Computed example of a mutant assay.
Amino acid sequence: MQHAFDNATRIVVVDYPRRPEAPGTLPEQRLLHIRFELDDFVNEAGAEPHFVGLLYQTRSFEALGISAPSRYFDFDGLAAAVSKALHGEEGAEARLYDWSRLYYQVADGSEAPLVDDHVIPHGCGHVIPQGPAG
């Protein structure tokens, strides 16, 4: 999924189960695994300073309770599966396993967190990545 500024806001990875008739298949290899990431960006266009496509947080999830399709997911089917997991529909759920938020340091050395109101002081310097949640 993409944002108005073409930022990829959802990234999904699917590990399909192995065929049950494959010799030597382990039980965990017979399971569907769906992992997805939700990225949030600052897009403040038209004002000075101008910030577009500036990542400020990433949340990583595992989708649980999703049934494997008969062959493969198409785009709409995969989008629906992720939506079900995020909203807890039909027995599906999303388990958060990582949440990283980026903080930006301004020239005077103070930190300037990028939050939902997207206030960024003028003169932002380098990124200070924060470790995984938990």
Rank of each mutant, 00 (worst) to 15 (best):
Q57D: 15
V82Q: 06
A68R: 05
Y56V: 04
A80R: 08
D39T: 11
G91R: 08
D39H: 07
F41G: 10
L78P: 09
A94R: 02
G65T: 05
A81E: 00
A85P: 00
D76F: 08
S70N: 15
H87R: 10
T58E: 12
R95G: 10
S60F: 11
E44C: 11
D74M: 05
D76L: 08
V52I: 00
A79C: 11
F75V: 09
P69W: 08
G91F: 07
G46D: 00
Y72F: 13
L78E: 08
A81V: 01
R59D: 02
E48S: 14
Y72M: 11
P69M: 14
E90W: 05
N43C: 12
L96T: 14
G65N: 05
A80P: 00
A63F: 04
G53K: 03
G65E: 01
L64I: 12
D39V: 09
L96V: 10
G46W: 02
Y72D: 08
R71Y: 15
V52K: 01
K84P: 02
L86Q: 12
A47C: 11
A85W: 06
F61M: 04
E89N: 02
L86E: 14
V52Y: 00
S83F: 04
L55W: 03
F61I: 07
L96E: 14
Q57A: 14
F51H: 05
P69Q: 15
L55F: 03
L64Y: 00
H50P: 01
G46H: 01
Q57G: 11
V42R: 09
P49T: 03
F73N: 03
G53W: 03
D40T: 09
D40Y: 10
F61G: 08
K84W: 08
S67D: 13
G65D: 11
R59H: 05
Y72K: 12
E89T: 11
F75N: 01
L54M: 05
Q57V: 06
F41N: 08
V52M: 02
A47K: 13
P49F: 04
P69I: 12
A63V: 00
V82S: 07
V82A: 03
D39L: 09
E93R: 15
E93L: 10
F75M: 04
A94W: 03
F41K: 02
P69E: 14
N43E: 13
L64N: 06
L54E: 06
N43Q: 10
L55Y: 11
F51W: 05
A47Q: 15
S60A: 15
R95N: 12
G77V: 03
A79S: 11
A94T: 07
F73T: 01
A92C: 09
S67Y: 01
E62T: 11
S70M: 13
F73C: 04
F61N: 08
G46P: 00
E44I: 07
T58Q: 15
L86N: 12
G88T: 01
G88Q: 01
L55R: 14
A63Y: 04
L64V: 02
A81G: 02
A94Y: 11
T58M: 15
F73A: 03
V82E: 07
A79R: 13
A45W: 03
L54P: 03
A47G: 06
G88C: 02
P49M: 07
P49Y: 11
